[in-house]
Design a protein around this nucleic acid. Structure first.
Lengths: 345, 345
DNA sequence: TAAATTTGCGTGTACGCACACGTAATGTGG
DNA sequence: CCACATTACGTGTGCGTACACGCAAATTTA
C-alpha cells in the first residue's frame, strides 16, 4: 500500500503538498494538483485510516438517552448491550459514550435526563424518544447547536434526526395478523389487549394494532376483532375481570397483545388453564422466553432490541466520523420467534 | 485517557519501562514492575489501539474460500457482501483479504481453489467447506501450518476449525415443520422434495429434512409425509412427472423443499396453477422474493447469508488480532420470511 | 580489585498522517 | 527597480506505541 510519502516522491513534491491536495486545501497550483490527483488515482492510493485517526487525535463524545436498566430481563438491557458492543468496536477512533438515564414510566424523569444531557457537551446523541411532547421541546436545543441525533426504538415524525433505527410498527402488526390467521379457524374471534400506560407514550402500540386490524379487513369470511384497554396491568382483579368478560361474551380464540406486556396476559392464561387460546405478543424478555417454551405464548414479534442500539450507534458514528449520511428510516427485520427458533438469537 | 507517557511520569520511569511491563517483557525489577502495574490499574489505563496498530504496522492476510458469484441473485452474493462489510470495518487494522473461488457444482474446481489458496501465505482462512471429503484432505496442511480457520454456511464435524458460523440445519427443519403444521389441515399429506445434487455435497439438506420429519413423529393424528428426490432440477419433464405423480397418488397439501431450489418448485406450482398447495423453502434469492410476494411460496427459512460472511470474518479477525477465542458453534438466528416481513432484512 | 557479565532502565527512531509554520518564487504597484 | 503581497511549496513536530539499541550500575568472576 502506498503512503503519502510515496505519492509525494512520485510527484516530486513534498508530503505537505500531497496532503493539501488530499484535503482539498488551497495553496497548490492547478498543474501540481492535477498531477498529484492523477498519481493518486493511478496507484489507487488510499489514506491510512489508522495513522489519520492517530494524527487527528480527536475525541468524539456521544450522548445516549435511554431508560434505566434494572435487570437483565429489562427490555432496555439489550439495546444497551448493542450500544456497548458498537462502542467497543469504534473505540479505536477514540470515541467515548455518556449515558443519561430516565424512568420510562415518568415523563418528568425523562425531562430531567434530557436537561442533564443538554448541559453536557458532545458531538452526537442517540435518543429513545419515548415521550413525544417532551422530546419535541428539547430537540430545539440540539437543532440550534447543530448536534446530529438518531432516534431508535420509537419512531418520531417531523424532527431533524439524521435517522431512525427500529421497527416498522404497522407492518409488524400485519405480520402478527397473518400468523394469527394461521392459528385460528373460521368463526373464531380475536381479542386485542392494550395497556393504557403504553398507549399514552408513543404511537408504536397503536400502529401495531392498526396494522393487525388492517390485515383482517380484507379477510373473507370476516373475522370479529374485539379490543380492550387495561387501565393498569398490575391491578390483577380488574385485568381478570376485563378479560374474562370478553372471553365469556365472545367466541374468542386468538389474543393479540401489541406490547411486551404480553407477559402478564400469558400469566393469566397459564393460571386459568386457557392454553387453547392462541397468544401473540411482542419482545423477548426472560419471562416471555419461558412462556414461549411452554407454549403459552405462541409467537413473539421481536424488534431486534440489540441491533437497535448497535445500529443506532454505528449510524451516528459513521455520520460524524466518516460523513456517511444514513437512510432516514432504518427499519430492522421483523423477527418472528416461536418455540422452535427461540434458541438462536 | 491516560497514555503510556502519563503512566511513565507517574511511576518516575521511562515509557520504555512501562512498555516492557505492559508486554510482560523481561528487564524490569520486580519492584518497579509492581509499581507500574498498580498505577496502570488505578488509572485504568488502556492501551491506544490506534497507535498500537500503527506502530506494529503488521499486515494480516485473510484467505477466503467461497463459490464464484455470478450475479446478485446468487446465494453466495450475500455472504460475500458480509465478508466485504467486515473487511471494511477491520481495514483500519491493516487487514487484507484474498478470495479464492470455486464452482460449487464441481468438486475438482473446489480442490483447485483450495490448492491455490494453500500456495499463498496468510494468517487465517474463512472457508465454505462445501465438499466434505475434499475439505478434510486439504485441512491437514492448514493444521500443520497452524493457521486458524473458520467454517461458515456448511457445518463440518471433527475438524480443528476455531468456529462454525451458520445455521443449525436440523432445528431449522423443525421450525419449518411447525409452520407447515399451521398451514395444512388434518388428513392432508406433505411432500418433501429433495434434489440429488444438493444431497451429494453436504448434510445440511438431509439434516433439514430430518428435523422436519421429527416434528411430525409426535403429531396426532399422524400426518403422512412423502419424499422424492429429483435427479436433476433442470430436467423439467422429469421434474414435472415426478411431482405430478405424487400429487395424483396422494392427498398432498404441503410441500417442503429443504434448499434454495424451492425456486423451481415454485415455478412448477405457478405454471400448473396449484396455488392451493402450501410451499416452504429455503433462502432468499431475488426469484424467491418474487414467489414470496405473489404467495406461491408461503414461507422461507432464511439462513442469514449476509451475517454468515460478516460474523465469520469478524470471528477470525478477533481471534488473530484480539486473541478472542470464539464459541465452537456460532448458530445464527433461524429467520422466518413471509410476504409480510420480507421488506425488512 | 580489576575485568567481565548481567540487570535495569532510558533513548531514539519508525509507523503514516495532520497541520502550523517557514520560506522561496512569483506577481503587483508605484 | 524596489517594496510588498501573494502564491506555492517544503519542513518540523506531534499523535501513542513498539522495539532495537545503548549505557550505567550492580553483580559475579578471575
Amino acid at each position: 500500500m502506498k503512503t503519502i510519502k510515496d505519492i509525494a516522491a512520485l510527484a516530486n513534491v513534498s508530503i505537505g503538498t500531497v496532503d493539501r491536495v488530499i484535503h482539498n486545501r488551497p495553496g497548490v497550483s492547478k498543474k501540481t494538483k492535477e498531477l498529484i490527483e492523477k498519481i493518486i488515482r493511478e496507484h489507487n492510493f488510499q489514506i491510512n485510516k489508522t495513522a489519520r485517526t492517530l494524527a487527528l487525535n480527536k475525541k468524539y463524545d456521544i450522548a445516549v438517552l435511554i431508560p434505566t436498566i434494572e435487570s437483565s430481563s429489562d427490555f432496555w438491557f439489550l439495546p444497551k448491550k448493542g450500544i456497548e458492543k458498537a462502542s467497543e468496536e469504534i473505540e479505536i477512533h477514540r470515541t467515548s459514550v455518556s449515558y443519561f438515564y430516565f424512568d420510562p414510566s415518568d415523563f418528568n424523569s425523562f425531562k430531567e435526563a434530557f436537561d442533564k444531557l443538554l448541559q453536557n457537551s458532545f458531538d452526537a446523541a442517540l435518543i429513545a424518544p419515548i415521550f413525544l411532547k417532551e422530546t419535541k421541546e428539547h430537540l430545539i436545543q440540539l437543532d440550534q447547536k447543530k448536534i446530529p441525533y438518531v432516534f431508535f426504538n420509537v419512531e418520531f415524525q417531523g424532527a431533524n434526526n439524521i435517522s431512525y433505527v427500529g421497527q416498522h410498527s404497522y407492518d409488524s402488526g400485519i405480520l402478527a395478523a397473518k400468523i394469527m390467521s394461521l392459528l385460528i379457524g373460521n368463526g373464531e374471534d380475536i381479542l386485542i389487549i392494550k395497556v393504557r400506560k403504553d398507549s399514552n407514550q408513543h404511537s408504536a402500540i397503536e400502529d401495531r394494532a392498526s396494522g393487525f386490524k388492517s390485515y383482517f379487513k380484507t379477510q373473507a369470511p370476516p373475522i370479529k376483532i374485539h379490543e380492550i384497554i387495561l387501565p393498569n396491568i398490575k391491578d390483577l382483579p380488574t385485568v381478570d375481570r376485563l378479560i374474562s368478560e370478553q372471553l365469556t361474551n365472545h367466541h374468542i380464540k386468538g389474543l393479540f397483545v401489541p406490547s411486551s406486556k404480553v407477559t402478564q396476559i400469558a400469566s393469566y392464561i397459564k393460571e386459568n388453564k386457557l392454553k387453547h387460546l392462541k397468544l401473540i405478543g411482542y419482545d423477548l424478555s426472560d419471562e416471555n422466553a419461558v412462556f414461549i417454551e411452554n407454549e403459552t405464548i405462541d409467537f413473539l414479534i421481536d424488534q431486534n432490541a440489540f441491533f437497535q442500539g448497535y445500529e443506532g450507534m454505528k449510524t451516528l458514528f459513521n455520520f460524524i466520523i466518516n460523513d456517511v449520511v444514513p437512510e432516514k428510516n432504518c427499519y430492522l427485520p421483523i423477527k418472528l420467534l416461536t418455540k422452535e427458533n427461540i434458541k438462536y438469537l
